[in-house]
Write a protein that binds this DNA or RNA. Structure first.
Length: 788
DNA sequence: GTAGGGTTAG
């Protein structure tokens, strides 16, 4: 054998070995390295086709550095090696370098494949306009577009909005160039029509394809799914002779996204029994289905199946499967299970981190959430949104607003969801001015038609005491969903407009929106705040009978609440005994609140004792129990209840009230000595009280629940935090402006009485939001009708 | 050496 023949034989041998590196797997990278190092060890210098092959393998394994190293050793790289490397740069997201490479390649050695590769680069980086531009340049440079060119350009076009015109033009060109005989080109055209929402055109074209391949079928099926025409998609899938897993997977995820969970699970089961291969896509969708539908046991079963199947090695490493499992366990209150999966994952991405973060936050485990947030290697919009709204939901409004600002300063432009979170923070703080500013920013950014932000604003205005603004927003929002209706009904209810709340509910039904369990919770609350006993019973029964919603403990608790507030303890008792489960904390709490209002000491003490047994760390029950004893004059028992509380290390949440004045929040505690202007507040009150007394105000010292001398009691009364905050606001707000004060606990009975007289004396409206509801004091009346 | 479908976090 001659030397040159020998070298050719070795080269062929290497070439056939390199062929084993396709298609790309983890193993093929190390195989390529082995072959390459073999060449180096034996002093073999690859050239020409073999070198291109090596560059191509490295390029495709995202080992661009190796590929580039080899490439730089070639004095005059040919078009094939340039194409491989250019594509590698594009696919790694480095379009700039790819583009540079394209421009540096002389026109004389370019070919159509080279143009196609660059177009692919733009397409993969979602730059549809550059796809078109380069396509035009290709024509100017007098290269013939082929089937690959059209497929790629159309693929790029499918990623841009507003491309109906270009699509039609390209369709024409396809017909002119004769590339319309290629199924791949027609598939790409169908895909663009699909993405324009033109399903009629898409279907017409699909029907005209003589040689439909798998992709033709999956394109049209997924097209229907994307355009929410699930039934049309299903009809095609059922009629297909070949069972394509891709089409079935698309159906499953489509059903999940439309909340059609039964059909999703059904489809998955059929897939299994028909022997269609279940891959990571199907598993991911069905697990996500279980997460959304709360199907814990089925989800766990699928998880077990994943662990047992022969595909386990690949599924174990599958990011989407693991991420879906994290969400499944988070949504089923098993955050620690989710965490274990997270900890065992060999590779994690931002989705995994966000999933756990939202798990912690939604479970109220905000401390762990904070730690997790601070440790995240990467954050995106969702990360911030989850954290901000999580802080809002867990009572950390101030921190949430700080985070919102931090988000902006770190260069993230908040979207409507972030605004919704920040607005919720304002809701809980009662930070009306701040909330108004956020509203203004939304309008400026053109985000004010957003549903999530709008719904948050409805709640914010209501929770800040301006229910009229909520109503105005509700009436002018371009789109409403059930959350909007629920928010508005709740807003009316909190402010004591029970009848209007019920009227709105009827309008909701007329608008064709189906009520959910939240709707009925807000309805029952509204009835409670307005004392609408008959109505509450009516809607409670309606919920199950007409809408098939099984009342939960929370619904029962609210019904009990309405009855107890009306003093109907016997009926409340009947409701409790009719419950299909043991009464929990919410029910006892409702009972206790009613007993407190009506001075039903015996029953109240029973309820409080049950409550203390159920949640021994909750301060309110001890305080109420102690207060009940005190009301009955049983000071020893009262003291014992407080002692029990101390012995168990339970601290009473101190009463505090706050008010926004000149865009600053002023906080007052009981007997406050901290606020810089508190002395002025006390002397203002001392001037006001005699005037109130002239109108008939008698300080009601029974609300001072310490066993002290009665002359001191009146002084303690006037130092209540809500009185201080109201007085401060009266002093500092412009003449005639409505006072809006917030309190973390329920308003004290004497303060409630005092504010009625105060509103008359100063001729202004005083609005107080306490832990339960709103009180509008106007002209010696309160909107709650002394019913709270 | 170039194309195209289905998955996960609020």
């Amino acid at each position: 054998m001659k030397g040159s023949d020998f070298i050719r034989a070795v080269a062929n041998r290497y070439a056939s070995q390199l062929q084993l590196c396709y298609p790309q797997t983890l193993a093929s990278i190390s195989l390529a390295k082995t072959i390459h190092s073999h060449m180096i060890t034996f002093g073999f210098h690859p050239r020409g086709h073999l070198l291109n092959r090596l560059i191509d393998v490295y390029s495709k394994s995202s080992k661009i550095i190796y590929a580039r190293h080899l490439f730089d050793q070639i004095p005059e790289p040919d078009i094939a090696s340039r194409t491989s490397l250019l594509l590698a740069y594009s696919l790694s997201g480095d379009v700039k370098t790819a583009q540079k490479m394209f421009e540096e390649t002389p026109l004389s050695i370019r070919d159509s494949v080279f143009y196609n590769a660059m177009i692919t680069g733009y397409s993969r980086n979602e730059d549809g306009n550059s796809c078109i531009e380069l396509f035009r340049q290709m024509l100017r440079d007098e290269f013939r577009p082929d089937d690959f060119t059209f497929t790629t350009v159309l693929g790029g076009l499918a990623r841009v909005f507003n491309k109906v015109m270009q699509c039609k033009q390209l369709h024409g060109l396809v017909l002119k160039t004769g590339t319309g005989f290629f199924t791949s080109v027609l598939n790409a055209l169908v895909s663009v029509y699909v993405n324009c929402g033109l399903m009629f055109e898409a279907r017409k074209l699909f029907d005209e394809i003589d040689t439909k391949d798998e992709l033709s079928w999956t394109t049209i099926v997924t097209g229907y799914v994307k355009n929410d025409e699930l039934d049309a998609a299903r009809e095609l899938v059922d009629g297909m002779s070949e069972k394509l897993a891709v089409a079935w997977n698309a159906m499953i995820s489509g059903y999940v996204h439309c909340n059609r969970y039964d059909e999703a699970v059904d489809m998955f089961r059929k897939m299994y029994f028909m022997g269609i291969k279940i891959d990571e896509f199907a598993y991911t969708s069905v697990i996500s289905c279980c997460a959304n539908a709360g199907l814990f046991y089925l989800g766990k079963q699928v998880h077990c199946y994943v662990l047992r199947t022969e595909a386990k090695p690949t599924l174990d490493f599958s990011l989407p499967v693991n991420n879906a499992l994290i969400t499944l366990y988070c949504k089923c209150d098993k955050v620690d299970w989710a965490r274990r999966i997270f900890d065992n994952m060999p590779v994690r991405d931002i989705v995994s981190w966000n999933a756990i973060l939202s798990g912690y936050v939604n479970a109220g485990r905000i401390d762990e959430g904070r730690v997790f947030f601070s440790k995240m290697p990467e954050r995106n919009h969702l990360t911030w949104n989850v954290m901000i709204s999580g802080l809002a939901q867990n009572g950390f409004g101030e921190e949430g607003l700080k985070l919102f600002n931090q988000m902006k300063s770190e260069g993230f432009r908040p979207c409507d969801y972030a605004f919704a979170g920040a607005i919720s923070c304002c809701s809980m703080l009662g930070a009306l001015e701040n909330g108004r500013q956020l509203h203004a920013q939304l309008v400026r950014l053109g985000l004010d038609s957003s549903l999530s932000a709008g719904n948050a604003l409805i709640t914010m205005y209501a929770r800040c005491g301006v229910v009229e603004a909520s109503n105005l927003l509700f009436l002018t929002m371009p789109y409403l969903d059930s959350v909007s209706w629920n928010a508005m009904i709740a807003a009316l209810g909190q402010h004591g407009h029970g009848i209007q709340a019920l009227e709105l509910f009827e309008q909701m039904l007329e608008a064709g929106i189906s009520p959910d369990r939240i709707t009925f919770l807000t309805i029952l609350s509204a009835c409670s705040h307005a004392g609408l006993v008959k109505e509450s019973q009516y809607y409670f029964n309606l919920m199950g009978r007409l809408y098939g919603i099984t009342p939960g403990e929370d619904h029962y608790a609210r019904l009990v609440d309405v009855l107890c507030r009306a003093g109907k303890f016997l009926e409340a008792n009947d409701v409790i005994s009719s419950m299909p489960f043991e009464p929990g904390a919410a029910v006892w709490e409702a009972l206790l609140a009613g007993c407190r209002t009506h001075g039903n000491v015996d029953l109240g003490i029973q309820a409080a004792e049950q409550l203390i047994e159920l949640i021994p760390h909750h301060d309110g029950s001890y305080v109420l129990l102690s207060n009940m004893y005190a009301t009955a004059g049983r000071w020893n028992d009262a003291a014992n209840a407080r002692k029990l509380m101390r012995d168990r290390g339970v601290r009473k949440e101190p009463g505090c009230s706050w008010v926004e004045v000149e865009n600053k929040v002023h906080v007052f505690l009981v007997d406050d000595t901290v606020h810089p202007e508190v002395q002025a507040v006390y002397s203002y009150l001392n001037k006001l009280v005699p005037e109130m007394k002239r109108l008939g105000y008698v300080p009601d010292t029974k609300f001072v629940l310490h066993d002290i001398e009665s002359d001191q009691k009146e002084r303690v009364l006037s130092a209540h935090s809500e009185k201080l905050a109201v007085a401060f606001a009266l002093m500092r707000l412009p003449r005639g402006a409505t006072v809006r004060v917030f309190k973390n606990l329920r308003i004290c009975g004497d303060c409630h009485n005092a504010f009625k007289f105060m509103s008359k004396v100063v001729g202004r409206e005083i609005v107080v939001r306490d832990a339960k509801r709103f009180h509008h004091f106007r002209d010696s009346q309160c909107s709650c009708g002394d019913y709270w």
